[in-house]
Amino acid sequence: MSRYVIPKSVHTIAGSARITVGVPAGAWRQIASVLPSNLAEMIGRVPLRYLADLEEIRLRRDRPLMLGLGGSDYFIRQDGTPVSESSGVYVVNAVDLEKVLHNISGSSMYALEEELKNGYVTLPGGHRVGLTGKAVLENGRVKTLKYLSGLNIRVCREIKGAADGLIKHLIDRRVQNIYHTVILSPPRCGKTTLLRDLVRQVSNGLPGLQLAGRTVGVVDERSEIAGCHRGLPQMDVGVRTDVLDGCPKAQGMMILLRAMSPDVIVTDEIGSMEDIHALEEVFNAGVRVIVTIHGSSLRELANRPALKYLLQLNIIERFVLLGRSRGVGTVEKIYNGNDLPSLGVKMCLS
């Protein structure tokens, strides 16, 4: 089961006491507003101690309604009781799905064309709805989805302060600027959450570390960093941040570089040679870069041609390796780009 929602244990990044992050009432209201009224009421009756841990709501046609609550999933009865066996529980019907789609799209399926192609929609508040159905192909590429049969509404929680412990390691004190940084992480280790908070902090500035706010340009190809709904960031990404939503990374970096004169360019999950060439342009323009890469070690990167090329450019100054050894979002290591092989100190930030 894939979860883009970052579980609450991300607190290990923050390095402070356990942050309890329940679903705020605002988030629940945003989600309830796309549910048909019968479902919204039913889920609203789920006891608060469960509902506070709401991670996802799964609607599959003719199968039981399922809630992801605090890491495990539950069916629910009409009266809102969460149960783990599927007898006497609410079963999702075609009308429920149709109503959710009406609400998400504003009754305008044509407005979801791009989203159907990608298989997800971002809601106000940054929550995401994943969609499945039958794919309609055109020239071998997905044109749209029809006969939608499954929806997964994933609750979004931004964790402000996720980068508190890390950011001081990413500031070049000699020039009071951000290092070129690569965040290296296996999936589901909290890299996007971390990146978002880095963006916010760099954009707002850090008086405590004598870092003035920088203009940050974010290329958010999958709408995960800023969670844009109709182009408007739904998460706090800072006051000096420009977000290019849904744009392919390489093109987006060029657009930002030419049009928005950013001090820092941020993007998620680079990997292709095209991305690296775009990054080179960014380096040449003297703009700082913070990017994330899928991977679990530097050695692994060196085996991928595009990323090997990036390493050989020898321009990235900090590599941050995330893992889950102390829960999601643990900063396992921070490598200094100048002496890559030798610096292997395990930084424990929690």
Partner: peptide
Amino acid sequence: EITYAATPLPEA
């Protein structure tokens, strides 16, 4: 509104 901007119906 629909073909060029794909504006959702309430706004359109």
